[in-house]
Design a protein around this nucleic acid. Structure first.
Length: 432
RNA sequence: GUGGGUGUAGCUCAGCCGGAUAGAGCGCCAGGUUGUGGCCCUGGAGGCCGAGGGUUCGAACCCCUUCACUCACCCCA
């Protein structure tokens, strides 16, 4: 006997969980399509060189990489963005190109709460449009998806790499050290200003008057976004970044997104190296699970795969995290079955009658099961009750003799004997 | 990659300083009700106490090793 096991960080999705996941994916797809996004899929396997060097030092270590039988270096996709960039470079797509993709990605990470080695991302991206209007639309979609799923307790954090770069420049931090600067800054709401300052000092980032500026503008408390904005508005990059965020706010507001759902946040940095403009993250307050969505503009990325450079922006929902939050908050009714009607089987002699009746009910549009054996009625009713099947049709010798059947409502316990030809109508009424 | 925690029935767990046939609740199966679920009552099945080694008269309990799971850090969805 082989001990049944699955690799660490990988999971089976049993029906109960699969139904929740499927519902979330359907809701998302519907919203995506309502905003004009079209579906796309790419292989799970890419050549390693396609993925490597795109995610920063930490990211590269988490790529599942191996050699195929022909000795080629291949890798499981780490996200959906790089494969999209590859696609955008390989095909002549109409632009702006708006696609969505819901698919698993793999990271050789150590699993923990809400974090797995195989997990699903749900991405929307807009390629070929440099206006921040495109970024804003992504956030409108994000908001619409979360609303459609029943979320209310979340915050869309918005920042801009241009502003951060202008800030770094103002502080005299050279380009090579910006990632470390951002990493330190990103921890502001987690570890507090003191720790951030110490981190920056330890990295030797703060020379000249930089430390004073950081203390007074970034870590002083109050509206540090405004303070930094004032600091960088003189620089061309900084001003451009600020203008983009203004445009985004205008679009969100006009789309009817309440101001309480989003916030400009100077400490949002995002880990990936490839972001160049507006960046986003959505956090939920209740289960502390990190972000449920992340993304931003990556204008330079597609240029890595083709001479023709192309602006692009995108966001990614973490399906697992949405599921975790929805489960912990009891936001979704759990079901064990999608069956609407169970036809009981009374005895061998009534087998064909049962099959025929079930077939007719299916033709009428009901998800219908015929109980698979002539067990005791008690057992058949328990089967329906345990799965939450709302309607049971009992077809015994008495009923069969004169083309009738007993319809039982499992929620109320009510039942009635009906002509078989009136069953469908009665079930429809019962289920509505 | 670093550091904690936990492994006992299908599930959630109890089992005090080592002591006899290892327990509970839930679930499952059967019966009470030979054509009726949920509630109630009765009974039943189901455990190499994660694995290996050691200490001991005696180990689920103590020690070592190992594996698995889990949480946190780093980073991220």
């Amino acid at each position: 006997m082989i001990e049944p096991q699955i690799p660490k960080g990988f999971r089976d999705f049993l029906p109960q969980q699969m139904m929740l996941r499927r519902d979330i994916m359907r809701t998302m797809s519907a919203v995506f399509e309502r905003y004009g996004f079209v579906p796309l899929d790419t292989p799970c396997l890419e050549y390693a060189r396609t993925l490597e060097g795109k995610y920063g030092e930490e990211g590269d270590k988490l790529i599942y990489r191996f050699e195929d039988r022909g000795g080629r270096a291949v890798a499981l996709r780490y996200d959906l963005t790089i494969p999209l960039a590859r696609v955008a470079a390989m095909y002549q797509l109409p632009r702006p190109f708006k696609r969505y993709q819901i698919a698993p990605v793999w990271r050789a990470d150590k699993p923990q709460k809400g974090r797995f080695r195989e997990f699903y991302q749900c991405d929307i991206d807009i390629i070929g449009e440099s206006s921040a209007c495109a970024d804003a639309e992504l956030l409108c979609v994000a908001h619409a998806v979360l609303q459609a799923l029943g979320f209310d307790n979340y915050l869309i954090r918005i920042n801009n790499r241009k502003i951060l770069n202008a800030l770094a420049e103002r502080l005299g931090i050279d380009t090579a050290r910006i990632p470390g600067f951002l990493r330190a800054l990103d921890k502001l709401d987690k570890t507090g200003p003191g720790a951030v300052l110490r981190d920056m000092q330890a990295q030797g980032l703060l020379t000249g008057d930089a430390e004073r500026i950081v203390r007074e503008h970034l870590l002083a408390g109050g509206d540090n976004f405004e303070a930094v904005a004032a600091l960088v508005s003189g620089s061309e990059t900084g001003a451009a970044g600020l203008a983009e965020l203004d445009l985004i706010a205008r679009v969100l507001s006009a789309d009817g997104v309440d101001g309480s759902y989003y916030k400009r946040d100077i400490s949002l940095a995002r880990g990936l190296d490839y972001y160049t403009g507006p960046i986003f993250e959505v956090v939920v307050t209740e289960p502390r699970i990190g972000s449920i969505l992340g993304g931003g503009r990556y204008d330079g990325l597609i240029g890595l795969f083709t001479k023709q450079s192309m602006p692009a922006t995108g966001i990614s929902f973490g399906l697992e995290r949405l599921v975790t939050v929805m489960e912990e908050l009891g936001m979704h009714a759990q079901t064990n079955s999608l069956t609407q009607v169970l036809v009981t089987q009374f005895s061998d002699g009534l087998l064909e009658d049962g099959v025929r009746l079930a077939a007719r009910l299916r033709q009428s549009g009901f998800n219908t099961e015929l109980y698979p054996a002539p067990d005791k009625l008690k057992k058949q009713l328990s089967y329906a009750a345990a799965r939450g099947i709302p309607a049971v049709v009992v077809l015994g010798p008495d009923e069969a003799r004169d083309e009738r059947a007993t319809l039982k409502n499992m929620l109320t316990g009510d039942q009635a004997v009906l002509e078989q030809q009136h069953l469908a109508e009665a079930i429809r009424t019962m289920l509505s």
